[in-house]
Amino acid sequence: MNSVLVADAHLFTCKGIAALIGEIGPHQVVGTAHDGRHAAQLAHELQPDLLVISADLDGLACLDAIATVKRRRATQKVLVLCETGSAGSAREALRIGCEGFLRKTTSKEELGRAVAEVLAGRTYADPEISRRLLLTPEGDGHDRAEAALRALSPRERSVFRLIAQGHTNRSAGERLNLSHKTVEKHRATAMSKLRLKTAVDLRLLAVELGIVQRDTPAAPAAAA
């Protein structure tokens, strides 16, 4: 029986992923987490055979959480789930040691193949992401945007992600346990580092990077 830890920002999505994993093979979900910091902590405590982690985590961003997990236990196998799966995101995840990268829109059968491949010690990316990796050369504009995002602190990345998803400064602060003034400061710093002038610019970059989908409600133009 393979032990699996599931991490996703949304409770029902997390439960759904856990249920699917229980159906696709001899796997037991030994824990769930809803933010990056908790995911890294549980991975350290439980040492599961596989960590299935969503790219849209709050608190400690997904890639930062994975880097922490890998630093503590280099042999930890990791499968990343994302909404859209940009080539830059996949390339960065693989660079820091993830064994698998899969879109959330994939089929149950594809999830089963990904889990089996990663547990067997092989690298797996679903066909669409593999195609994007082949067609998108390193160092293009998309990868430069990814590099700029990596220049943000973990807290700035979390704020960037929440604002892009449509949160106000106040609601983002509630999610991160910060005051809206602190969120406003992180938001301004992130936008300055990324050379963004408006909330629309921020959202367009988030869509380009696959952080949010185009049909996600737009972020407010003014702080609230």
Rank of each mutant, 00 (worst) to 15 (best):
M1W: 00
S3L: 00
A7H: 06
A9T: 10
A9K: 09
H10G: 06
F12I: 14
T13W: 12
K15P: 03
A18V: 06
A18R: 02
A19W: 10
L20T: 14
I21M: 01
I21P: 00
I21K: 00
P26D: 13
H27K: 05
V29D: 01
V29L: 04
G31Q: 02
A33T: 08
A33K: 03
R37V: 10
A40F: 05
E45H: 11
E45N: 11
E45T: 07
L46D: 05
Q47P: 04
Q47V: 04
P48A: 00
L51R: 00
I53L: 07
I53Q: 02
S54H: 15
S54Y: 08
A55T: 11
L57H: 02
L57N: 05
D58K: 10
G59V: 14
I66R: 08
V69M: 01
R72N: 12
T75W: 08
K77I: 07
K77R: 15
L79V: 06
L81T: 11
C82I: 06
E83W: 10
T84R: 11
G85S: 09
A87V: 08
G88M: 03
E92K: 07
R95M: 10
R95S: 14
I96A: 00
G97V: 01
G97M: 00
G97K: 01
F101K: 03
R103Q: 15
K104H: 08
S107R: 07
K108P: 02
L111Q: 05
R113H: 13
A116R: 15
E117C: 12
E117M: 10
L119M: 09
A120K: 13
T123D: 09
P127G: 09
R132N: 03
L134M: 10
P137K: 06
E138Q: 13
G139P: 04
H142I: 13
H142Y: 07
R144S: 10
A148V: 07
A151W: 10
S153W: 13
R155V: 14
S158Y: 13
V159R: 06
V159F: 12
A164H: 04
Q165L: 11
G166R: 06
H167M: 07
N169V: 07
S171C: 04
G173W: 04
G173C: 08
E174T: 11
L176R: 13
H180P: 15
V183G: 10
V183A: 07
E184R: 15
H186Q: 14
R187A: 14
A190V: 07
A190N: 04
S192A: 14
K193L: 14
K193F: 01
L194P: 09
L196Q: 08
K197A: 14
L202G: 00
L202M: 06
R203N: 05
L204P: 00
L204A: 07
V207S: 03
E208K: 13
L209Y: 02
G210P: 02
V212P: 03
P217Q: 03
A218N: 10
A219F: 05
P220Q: 08
P220E: 11
A221L: 14
A224S: 04
A224F: 09
